[in-house]
Design a protein around this nucleic acid. Sequence first.
DNA 1: AATTCAGTTTTAGTATACGATTTTTTCTTG
DNA 2: CAAGAAAAAATCGTATACTAAAACTGAATT
Lengths: 225, 225
Amino acid sequence: MTDDDIHREIFEAIIDGRLEPGEKLGQDELGKVFGVSKTRIRPVLHRLADQKIVVIEPMRGAFVARPSVEDARAVNAARQIIEEGVIRAATRAAKPRHLKILRQIVAEEQGARDRRDGGHAHRLTGEFHCELARITGNDVVAELVRELVSRDSLVVALYQRPASSVCSLGGHTDLIDKIASGDEDAAAHAMRHHLQDVMDSLDLGDEGRKAPSLATAFAHLGSRS
Amino acid sequence: MTDDDIHREIFEAIIDGRLEPGEKLGQDELGKVFGVSKTRIRPVLHRLADQKIVVIEPMRGAFVARPSVEDARAVNAARQIIEEGVIRAATRAAKPRHLKILRQIVAEEQGARDRRDGGHAHRLTGEFHCELARITGNDVVAELVRELVSRDSLVVALYQRPASSVCSLGGHTDLIDKIASGDEDAAAHAMRHHLQDVMDSLDLGDEGRKAPSLATAFAHLGSRS
DNA sequence: AATTCAGTTTTAGTATACGATTTTTTCTTG
DNA sequence: CAAGAAAAAATCGTATACTAAAACTGAATT
C-alpha cells in the first residue's frame, strides 16, 4: 500500500460521493483503515488540501471540502477560461482517432444514463473533458484539466439538482461536431456555453443542501431572534 | 516560522537560482537551517514536488528539479494553450486600470533590464503574466498561471542563453496594445507567438548546461565504447 | 593500478511518544 | 431543569527514536 494508493483511495471516495462534503477525516481513523500510522496519512491529507478536495482547519483536522457558491462559480469560470484554450488547441490537433475516442465516451455516457447509473455517467462526463485535453498531446495541460474537473465534481456533488443529469446530454456531441468541423471559434464558443449550461443546471440558491447552516435549516420557523 | 514560510523560502531560493537545479535537498540539513525537525521539512518537500519544483527519488531524497528538454517544451506548450484562453478572457474583461498596472510592470521590467538586474527583470516577466491572469478576476485561473510561470522560471534558469534577456522586450507591450484594442483574436495570436519567442530564445540544444550528463560532458572526446 | 566487496556511515522513511489544543462529558450552580 | 464551568477524553501537530536502504570508505584481490 503505497502513498499514492492511499491518496487515490480517499480521492475516489470523495469524488464518488462515498464521503460527503464536510465529513471529518480523522488521521488516526484513516490510519487504522489503511493499517498505517497517521504519519503517512498527514501528507496525503495535505496533498488533497492542495487540490482543494479537502480543507484543513488548523488544530481541528481535515474535512471533505465543501466549496461555497462563490467557489463553485469560480471553478466553473476557470474551466470556461482554461478549456477555451484547450478546445482550440484540441481542434487544431484533432485526428480522426481522437474523435473516435470522444464519441465512444459519449456513447458509454449515454449507456450509463440509460442504466440510471448517475455516478458512472458523471464520472464519464469528467473523463470526456480530460480526454479532450489529452488531444492536445500535452501532459501538463491534461493534468491541469484533470484537477479542475475533479474540483468541479465536488461542486456538482454538492449542488446538483435532484432530477437533472440529462442536461449535458447533447453538449458533448455538439462539442465533437464542432471539433470535427475544424472551426476553432465555433468549438470555443460551444465549450463556453456547454460549461455555462452545466453551471446553470446547478442549484446555487442555497449554500449546499447537505449539512446546511442552522439558519437555513430552520428557515421555515421564521426568524424570531 | 510556519510551514508556508519554509515552503516560500525554499521555493524562492530555487526560483531565484540560489539553489541550482539538481542540488540535493537533505531533510536533516534543511531542518537545521530552519531550526525544526525533518518532520516538518518532508511535507514541504512533497508539496514542492507536486509543483514540479523539486523531484523526489524514492529512498534517495529530494533534489531541485532539472526539467528535461521535453519538460521545457511541454511547459511552454501548456502555457501557449492555457494562456490563450486567459488572454482572451482578459481582453474581454480588461478595464483601463488593468492596462495601467500592466504598463507599470513593463516599465519596471525595462528599468531592471537597464540596471542589468536580470534576476529582477525575469521575476517581473513572470509577474506580468500573473497580473494578466488576474484581470480575469478569477483566483483559480490566477493560481494556475502562477504555477505554470514558476515552472517555466526553472526552465529558463536552466536553458537561458548567456546573453539573451532582451528577447521579450517588445513582447509584453505588444500584448498590452492588443488587449487595449479589444481584438481578442489578435491578442491570442500575439500571446502564442510571444511564448513561442521565449521558447525559441532558449538554448535547448543540450540537456542543460549545469551538471551535464557524462555523455555530453565528454562528447569532445568522441565515442570510443 | 583498477576493481570489487565488506564494513561503516549517512540518510530517507516510518512508527511511536509527547505536548498542546480542541471537543466532549460531567458536575456544579442559579 | 438549564446554563455555565471544570475535568476528562480525544485528536492534532511536532519531535524523537528506530529501521532499512543507499552512499561512502578502505582494504583485499586480480
